[in-house]
Design a protein around this nucleic acid. Sequence first.
DNA 1: AGTCCACCGTTTTTT
DNA 2: ACGGTGGACT
Length: 766
Amino acid sequence: MSTSPSAQGPRPDEVSEPPYLSGLNAAQREAVETLDGPVLMLAGAGTGKTRALTARLAHLLLTGRAMPGQILAVTFTNKAAREMKERVAGLLGRSVEGWWLGTFHSLAARFLRRYAEMAGLQPNFTILDPDDQLRLMKQILVAEGIDDKAWPARAVLSAVERWKDKGLTPERVSAGEAGAVANGRGVELYAAYQARLQQLNACDFGDLLLHCIEIFRSRPEVLAELHRQFRYLLVDEYQDTNVAQYLWLRLIAQGHKNICCVGDDDQSIYGWRGAEVGNILRFEQDFPGAKVIRLERNYRSTPTILGAASGLIAKNEGRLGKTLWTEGDAGEHIRVRGLWDGEAEARFVGDEIEALQRAGESLGEMAILLRTTAMMREFEDRFNAIGLPHRIVGGPRFYERLEVRDALAYLRVVAQPADDLAFERIVNKPKRGLGEATLKQLRQAARAQGLPLLETARRLIATDELKPKARKALTDVVESFLRWRQAAEELPHTELAETVLEESGYIEMWRQDTAIEAPGRLENLVALVDGMADFENLQGFLEHVGLVMENLQETGGEQVSIMTLHAAKGLEFDTVFLAGWEEGLFPNQRALDETGLRGLEEERRLAYVGLTRARRRLFVTFAANRRLHGSWAAAIPSRFVDELPPEHVEVESEQGLYGQAAAAWGGSFGRFGAEEDPFGPRRVSPGMSRAQRYANEFRPFIDGTATVVESLPAEGGFAIGERVFHTKFGYGSVVRTEGEKLTVAFDHSGEKRVMAAFLVPADQAG
DNA sequence: AGTCCACCGTTTTTT
DNA sequence: ACGGTGGACT
């Protein structure tokens, strides 16, 4: 273990050692003090990673190893960057100025503003948001005559994004890879998209990194400058980096090779957007001589929770492997509970929360973690009904709201008149009679002259080419922008924004709107202008907006949190409810279909992330029936339920609920011994794996329940009044028949329209 | 030019 | 179920 020779003098003894070192365990201490060379800090969930990380930064600064400006620290979210800044300031007792701490994208943007012209951009380039990207891609597809039915802009754009994630410019995309996109025209479209971005003086998120990489590769003097500057690199959440980020890092790290990457391969959950677990698995090869430090002592969860999580994640292959341990009482068992449907599930969770609340537990220490946002609704409804304070974490973000985006589009055109996407967005908002016809004319002229739309409009209104009405309206728009650009020189940017929104009639448009959400939109506009006050100028504000799409919500108070598993990464709660653990939902069927075993393992990691969010108490629930895309689907418990080690789990099942499915399937949700199995003896051989049983007997139910069965011919007719049995809804009587569609009054779930193929005569059931 | 209706697709999401 | 989108209609 090396200690610095400088500032602090010789190795401090126990008493006088700096406060940020005290209380660290041996591994953490090693992670803090191993400053030179490549270090991989494998930090399991709840092992005090952030603590070690911030201490390391404090150590670098306090020992005089590095000046703030010589440290490059990368996080994944702005929130994480902010927290790190605050915590290091807390350790040092003062705030640190001038260091390079931020997200990959904000740091890359900072570089790129400096070297913009090397990438063919002007320094005031716009950063496109996802909506702009999509609109731009749509325009490209139209221009190139691509059938958008076969190749929707979404799909092409996502292919382009994956290429960018891999650090591939159009020239570098391999033929094999390109062939699969848009009938082999993928690269062509990618190139056209890039060309258009350049015209707009814009780039998308992926470009921020990609342009940097290209500059680093082609301009050794730039890279050398960065190498001189940055002596120490620190990267958080390394398991979620993509190839482009890896290349970017490696190029910068080549200088001093002092790179410390922190991550947990078991928590890699962003493969679907290009993250490569491989980056962390390969670290030691990528950075020869790397020291690997494992943080394995968990300070967060009970041994029970930790044991369950470890047992589950052990089913994954290709892990670096860690053995997390913790001390203390085993704690409460994990309660696994099966419910009739999603509504019952929400009711159950609500009841448990109320019970905990009565027992003195704080709502702020409880969270419901879900696989998809679609599942949130059920909980929201229920909590609203019983008046349980809650908040949805995530959800539509401030800068994504349409009124905010419109307002920003106005400001973007003022700041950067070549921003055609922004111009098109607001040219007819409020309605000015500038419809598609005029816009088409304008676009054509712009293309012919190779000029931005606003400049083209300025020229066009001097001619007689437009219809008088359109000409009048467009003149108005052009003159307004000229005036606002003038005003931008003199007015503070907040006043400029007010002027623009008022004079454009945009504010008035919402004042006139009688829709229920209009007042809220006006409030958001006010909030937007208020928020601008925190920035020095319009440019700085727009830069922030481009990079920070996060919510402004800081809702305090005692509330239960409802969020997706993805949103929960990095958080912890006393009590966690993991709901919707059903095959098809979680693990998500689409993940399995698209990426097979890889997808399954990522889903399992997601389960692991969920489990490890809990400090003391954990509930896992699943429903037998789930309303999905409008129709009902029968569900069976997630295989992950079975993968929780039995000794940590306590199953509570509603008696008889799963009679049908459970009996056919083997009569167990995994936890019952043969003698206590309430559903009777198993009908499948005990040696058969769950996956096999499943493949044999449940395939049709799992992949596409309804569709598979619906396509079968109806089996014989049912008579009105006949008693029938349905695997999802139970017993009932036929009310109406229309071919193979029947209406049945079910004893427990009311009238439903069902397919005859789903029904059997009641006397043949069981 | 603007409004209405049928149709489609529907995991996760930061920057 | 539901919301967004594109095409047809007024």
